[in-house]
Design a protein around this nucleic acid. Sequence first.
DNA 1: TTAAATTAGTTAGCATAGCTAACTATATTC
DNA 2: GAATATAGTTAGCTATGCTAACTAATTTAA
Lengths: 150, 150
Amino acid sequence: MKVKQEKTDRPEFLVADRLHSAAIHLLRRLRKLDIATGEGPARLSAMSVLVFGGPKTLGELAAAEQVKPPTMSRIVAGLARDRLVEVASDPEDARRMRIRATPKGEAMLWQGRQRRVEYLASQLQLLKPEELTALQDSVEILNRMLANWK
Amino acid sequence: MKVKQEKTDRPEFLVADRLHSAAIHLLRRLRKLDIATGEGPARLSAMSVLVFGGPKTLGELAAAEQVKPPTMSRIVAGLARDRLVEVASDPEDARRMRIRATPKGEAMLWQGRQRRVEYLASQLQLLKPEELTALQDSVEILNRMLANWK
DNA sequence: TTAAATTAGTTAGCATAGCTAACTATATTC
DNA sequence: GAATATAGTTAGCTATGCTAACTAATTTAA
């Protein structure tokens, strides 16, 4: 362990590792709440893109979610089966499909978000106000960084 | 959308949602690096617990990773098959198993971390120094919060 | 103006990772 | 010694990721 000390002491190394760990454990816990909505994280994330970003083609959705088309194809099929999205073919190009959230889908997303935030908020209460502020800022830094990744 | 404005304007709501989104997208990207190690995130996370926390029983590992025993049982079986961990029965209690990382397992973990940090570091260079510092602090706040969750 | 190439999405089939229910084996308790 | 409790496993389901190979539609080019 001692010989590897120089490696672990590099600050980006530590940030990378701790960030990885935090993301894994955060998602594991939030996933349990999401089970109550009856939908998994990939579906919720796709719904979120549709609700906040408006209708998208399958390819656009796959790109936004950084998954391959077959993966998104199956996710959309599931959402459509549950009437959370509506699929229509693009009149301009019959290969494309327009995917939009239904009112049912929007409602589901709001409820899930509500559930998540109520749980998270109860935990955030344990933080000092300045910690919450710091976290808030960093989440935006993180999201900006993620948005700019190649 | 307008009618729901009060909800979305609550700061914890926004932090929760953005954090959720950031965690999902961060993990999707890191997962792609981890593919190069030939191991999935659950395996890497379990290895990390073993390497940094020392040998554990299956139940302890499952608890640390917040998954059910059957899930961890399969993960450990895969790690053992690949000789990344060694399993020995506890002489005190034959029901228990002592799971420890092998040198091969430790090496794999170091390499994966190395790969991750090199990728992350290249992205972190795009941040201002004070943003990196802020992120670093917040990751610790987050990890503390996660550690204290019931 | 057809033929070739490209693009959008689907289908089939594989792996990982989560779960519950039901099981085996060992320890503990009464 | 019998009943109960505990540690892990096995079987089988779901969801989510992938690649390879396909269909259908559009665009490009001969």
